[in-house]
Simulated assay, not measured.
Amino acid sequence: MEAKIGISTENRQAVSEQLAKLLADEYVLYTKTRNAHWNVEGIDFLAKHKFFEEQYNQLDEFIDSVAERIRKIGHYAPATLKNFLALTHLTEYSERHNDSLGYIKDLLADHEAIIEFIRGNINPIANDYGDAGTSDFITGLMETHEEMAWFLRAHLK
């Protein structure tokens, strides 16, 4: 049954496509943060192991909320690794040592890429597609990514 929520079919499709890209980015970043949690080594292992766990738990919530937002506007969320890799703006993996600074730099770059992607979609989703709800939703995600990026960036000083 079609969602009759005051947004045209075409506009809901356009918003859904942007949310699918965001979902893919969130999933790839989640996986990379899990990797950091599992494989970090060094003198700061325990602190960074716990830090990365906190971050991937937040990302897990983002994944669910983005997928549910896609469903709320009447579309299906992509849910395969193949789809995520085709849709993401991020790279799946980069070569590095398993030290915390390498992981932090990589994860920070991904958060910043997601922040830029979201920021570029806030006004178009609200103004061009008439979906203030999704615009507000992604604004909140962006703000949390900004905080997570700040935490990562603080480790690099």
Results as ranks from 00 to 15, higher is better:
32 K>P: 08
53 E>L: 13
97 H>L: 13
56 Y>I: 02
46 L>F: 15
33 T>V: 08
67 A>C: 13
29 L>T: 00
58 Q>Y: 05
42 G>L: 01
50 K>W: 10
106 D>M: 08
17 E>N: 15
62 F>E: 02
96 R>V: 02
66 V>R: 00
87 L>I: 12
77 A>G: 08
43 I>Y: 13
52 F>H: 03
68 E>R: 06
73 I>E: 09
42 G>S: 05
18 Q>A: 11
90 L>G: 01
44 D>G: 11
46 L>E: 13
105 K>M: 11
106 D>C: 05
79 A>E: 12
99 D>E: 13
52 F>K: 02
70 I>M: 08
94 S>P: 03
103 Y>D: 02
93 Y>Q: 15
77 A>S: 13
36 A>N: 03
85 L>Q: 06
17 E>V: 10
44 D>P: 04
59 L>A: 12
39 N>M: 07
88 T>E: 09
107 L>A: 01
62 F>P: 03
36 A>R: 04
57 N>C: 05
73 I>R: 08
89 H>R: 13
95 E>R: 12
34 R>T: 06
19 L>W: 08
40 V>I: 11
41 E>I: 11
40 V>G: 06
90 L>C: 05
55 Q>T: 05
35 N>T: 08
85 L>P: 06
37 H>Y: 13
54 E>L: 11
95 E>Y: 11
95 E>F: 08
93 Y>E: 15
92 E>A: 13
24 A>W: 02
23 L>M: 02
15 V>K: 01
73 I>L: 15
14 A>V: 05
85 L>M: 09
76 Y>F: 15
15 V>D: 00
81 L>E: 08
82 K>A: 13
83 N>I: 02
55 Q>G: 01
88 T>W: 10
90 L>P: 02
88 T>A: 10
